[in-house]
Structures are given as C-alpha cells and as structure tokens.
Design a protein around this nucleic acid. Sequence first.
DNA 1: CTGTTAGCGCTTTCAC
DNA 2: GTGAAAGCGCTAACAG
Lengths: 342, 342
Amino acid sequence: MARKKETITIYDVAREAGVSMATVSRVVNGNPNVKPVTRKKVLDTIRRMGYRPNAVARGLASKKTTTVGVVIPDISNAFFAELTRGIEDIATMYHYNIILCNSDLKKEKELQLTEALLEKQVDGLLFLGGEVTEEHREVFSGSHVPIVLAATQDQREERPSVITDQVGSAQEATEVLIREGHERIGFLGGPLTDPIIGYPRYQGYRQALEEAGRALDESQIRLGNYRYDSGYELAMELLKGDAAPTALFGVNDEMAVGAIHAVQDLGKRVPEDVSVIGFDNVPLATQVRPLLSTVAVPMYDIGAVAMRLLTKYMNDETVEQNQVVLQNQLQLRDSTRLQEAE
Amino acid sequence: MARKKETITIYDVAREAGVSMATVSRVVNGNPNVKPVTRKKVLDTIRRMGYRPNAVARGLASKKTTTVGVVIPDISNAFFAELTRGIEDIATMYHYNIILCNSDLKKEKELQLTEALLEKQVDGLLFLGGEVTEEHREVFSGSHVPIVLAATQDQREERPSVITDQVGSAQEATEVLIREGHERIGFLGGPLTDPIIGYPRYQGYRQALEEAGRALDESQIRLGNYRYDSGYELAMELLKGDAAPTALFGVNDEMAVGAIHAVQDLGKRVPEDVSVIGFDNVPLATQVRPLLSTVAVPMYDIGAVAMRLLTKYMNDETVEQNQVVLQNQLQLRDSTRLQEAE
DNA sequence: CTGTTAGCGCTTTCAC
DNA sequence: GTGAAAGCGCTAACAG
C-alpha cells in the first residue's frame, strides 16, 4: 500500500528496484528500450511503493506540461459551456488537461489571466470570445506557445482562429422574416460596441434590410445584454409601441425566447401574430413552445476544432488552414411561419 | 521589449540588474527584506527584459502550484456550469487556478482523472457529483492534498463535503402537491442506482406519500435520464395512461419543463389541469410559461463554499465544520396552484 | 539495454 | 539587506 508521509520519488523506486533513475524514467514513459524483465520488475516496485510521478518536475525537465490554458468569458453561459465541452473532450483525447479561467469579457482580466496561464507554462492557449486589442497582441507575442482564438478573431488576421459567419447568418435569419412579408421587423440586439456578437449580428440584420431595399427603421431597434429578461423587456417595449413589429429577431436564443414570452404575455400568438427567430441554438431553443427557429451555431465543434488546431501547433504539425470558418445552419422550427429555407 | 527566442530566467535578470538570484526572487515574491532602491532596480530590469516567472520551476522548488483540480460530471450541464462558476470565482479570489475535468459520472474516468490531477501536484482537489466508492477512497488516501466533495458525500462520512438536503427538499416538493389535494402524483425520476440525485429525490417523494398515509403507486413512477426529452416522453406516457396523474414531480427542472410541455401539447393546462414542480432552479425554470415552481438549490454557493473550505485546508487553517449542509429553498411559482409554502 | 551526469528555473536555508 | 549554494524530482543526452 501507498504510504503518504514523505513523497516517494523516482530515485526511491530506482534504489528499491535495483536499477537507475533513467531506467525507471524509461518505463514510466513507455520507452521501448527496456528489457521486459526489467520493466516488469520496475513496474512491480512502482505499484508496491505507490509511486506517483511528479508532473511538475517532469514539466520542468521536459519543458512540456501537457496542460493548455483556456480563457473564456463565462462558463455558466450555455453557449460557452457547450463550447468548453468540445475543447475538453478533444484535449482529453490528446492527453491534455485544461486550466479554465473566466474573463467576463473584461479586458484587464483577460490580459492578466493570459499572463498567469503563460507563467504556468501551458503548452498552448485557447482564447475565447473577447475582442483582440493591441494589448492582447502584445501579451500574446510575448510568448512562444501557440495561441488559437475560438469564436473570436483578430481583426488584423494574424492569429489562427475558428469562427463562423455571423454576419451572413444574421442576414439569413433576417431574410426569413423578410420573406414572410413583415412590414416591421424588430431587432433585439447586444451592445454595438461588441465586435464579436453584438456588432456583426446587427450588421447582418441591416444588410438584409438593405438588400431587400428596405430603409433601416431605428425605432425597431433595441439593444440589451443578451439575457432572457432583457429580451423580454425590450420586446415588450417594441410590442407596446405605436408601430409594433410583427416579427422579431433576437441575436441570441435567450433574448428570442424572452421575446416569445413577451408576445404571449400580451395575449398574442407566435408565429401567427408575431414571428420570432433567434441565434445560437442552445438547448433552450427546443425547450420552449413554440419551438424556436434559430441559427444553429456548432458550439461544440468550434471548441473541438479549435482544440484540435491547437494540438497541431503544439506538435509542430504543418497546418494547411489556420483560419477555419465553420458553418452555421438555419434551423426553422415553429416560431416562424416559413418552414423551409430557400 | 520582450524578446521571445530563448526564455529569460531569473538568473538573467539577476545578472543584468547586478544582484543575486535570491534578491530577484525576493522582489518577485514581495519579500519585504529588500532595500527600496534595489527593489526598484530589479523591477525595472524585469520590465525591461520582459521577464516572466516560471511557475513550474517555482512549483517544484516550493511544492505549491496554486492550482486546484476539479472533477465534475459534465460542464455543459447548467447545474454544474453554475456550480463551477462559484468554484472559479472563489479560486480566483484566493489566487488559485483550476484544472477542469469532465468525468461523465464514469467511475473509471473519475479515478483516472483524480490520479492525473494528483500527479500534476494540485494543491487541492474538488470532487463533484459522483458516488464515492471504496476505490475512490483508496485513490484519495494515496495523497496528502486536501480533497473536498461538493454536491456529493462519502456515505462513510470521512471526507469534508458540502451538500444540501435532497431527501428533505424532495419531500417538501411532493408535499406541496399533496396539499393541493391531488389523488395521483406522478414521479419523473432518474436512475435509482444514482445515490447522489436519483435515489435521494425518489426517497423524498416516497417519504412524503408515506407520511401523508398514502400508498406508493408504482404505476405513477417513471425513471429517465434527467433530460428534457426524457421528462417530456415519460410525462406523456403517464398522462396518456388510464390513471393519468394530475400532478407531476420532476426530479430536476429539465424533466419538469418537459412535463409542462407534455401537458400543454395534450391540450391541457398547467397548473389548472396538472400541477408540475421541479428541482434545482436552473435558468430554464424562469424561462418557461408558466414559470416553474421548483426547489431552488444554491448551486453557485455549493461551489463557492466548497472552494472556500478547500482553501482553508490548503492553508492549514482550522476548520470548525467540515461537513456543511446548505439550505435548499422551495420556490413556488406558477406551475403549481399553491403559492406559498406552509 | 542501462547507468551517469547535467541541468530545467526557482525557493530556501544559512552565512555575512 | 544580500549572496552562495543546495536541492525540488525528473528528463535527456551521452557513454558504455
């Protein structure tokens, strides 16, 4: 049985087994250059002594920690939780562990966390969700470990990243509403200062109207914080106004579902009276009545692909494509009248 | 500016600043025994050279990694995501980072992950959600780092843990339904072999009926997998049966909301025709119509308190109470007719 | 196939 | 207040 008092080291095992440290190290690391008999002997004493290799020492000596850092806005957000699952699954597959840090999208926190992660000698870093500023670039470039961006990108395009086409998908979503023939299409958005979600999705909405030859009606636009309550209240405002919209585009599902309930609480029906479409396709989208039409974002895949990409960099594999764009998929369900995409 | 080619070490800084490694180490660690002038000089060259302390080397020398391991069933599950947020916030507050691992509640994975985390020399470990078996105890005891359980406990009660009273709360929830005067109260549960959620919540249901002098009607019991779809389908089954229940207790909110929709899809109303109560109080509970009555579990707090408890152990503080029980709170909303607790 | 020997970069006595 | 030196536990040449 394992004694716990003083930690037992590779040296102890070597002595006990009557071999050198190097040999023990070899069997621990699966190096084939060890005679089977020796290997067995070592393995036995390892088990007998309850030896547990010290990964920190190993990390110092080998300059590899088999750990990657993940900077994420907020793990309690369904979108990022799912994305993180994708990251972790692939990380596990390649025998990496992940150090998870919530940034709340605060620049200072992002920088400080990145710095801390780099100090911990992570073999790679996944940076999610925030805007990449000049300061970020500085911190990033102060390190030689590979860094890949997920669900965000450097506007100056010099970092590997995996993203989806937000503008295009937001435009498609809006087009569905336009094709349904609505006069007034309300927009429930996020801060326009948010270059990752808020702005691009707004841009898609605008572009759709524009291409349809419609004027942008400022009074149909409401900006919130991506949360259910915000969607509910903003939709209420719009719906109670003089020129109530008959269709609503929520830039994420939470806001869209809030909008559905606002419509319903006003005694109207979705989609008969008001059509609603969302974005993301989080579980909530199919846990509401009517089922929410939305843009399905491959959250899990974004995480998985980003992590996979990172492993390639960490292994110095050649990567053919460092900026991968995953496809979103329009998912028309019951909160819109149109049931099929063009 | 920081050059990135060869890593710059504490030794380089010392040489450049014309002091010894020890001094640099002191200023980096905020040791007060350094003359202000010297400190400034060192700080300057650190900044100038772009020196970044190597936490791995530090960890090896000091035997502290300021990192804690977290073994969790599934981060993409809203319950655990929120709990993890509590953990991470407190960890950050105490300057720890967390290594996050998903176990999917698989014993083998739990053991293997715990082992890996221990090898990485985490200063402490948070173990969430799974059953603690003899094998777990063995792995746990093979280490001297503090381990605290969150949202689970060792039946043999020898580990620090933070939990809530599941049986009692499940009983309370069921009692609400009983007080509403329902003849048949359906139960939508999880596997009874799950000692953490499935069984205790079932036990609470049973106990409530028992204390009310009611016989347990097996035909009103359906076991699923905690998911929305499972709740929906199982409720459908029950509702379409000969002896359709007029009240449903879902052991978690997802199942309960699934049940609400089953009722609605059958053309009936909640709570007029069928009352529904859930458990957990995840965001979904307030993102559905009618608002779901449920048992509010302090998810964030469970994580936060567990992490706080762990820090105490890591700092060798004396802890007065190592088994903390947090309170759940009955949250009656619109899916039940009763609007106030006893 | 196996052992020897340097470090990896930092903390930590122990002197001065 | 500061420096010298001995490790922390392991990997990685390099011999043999």
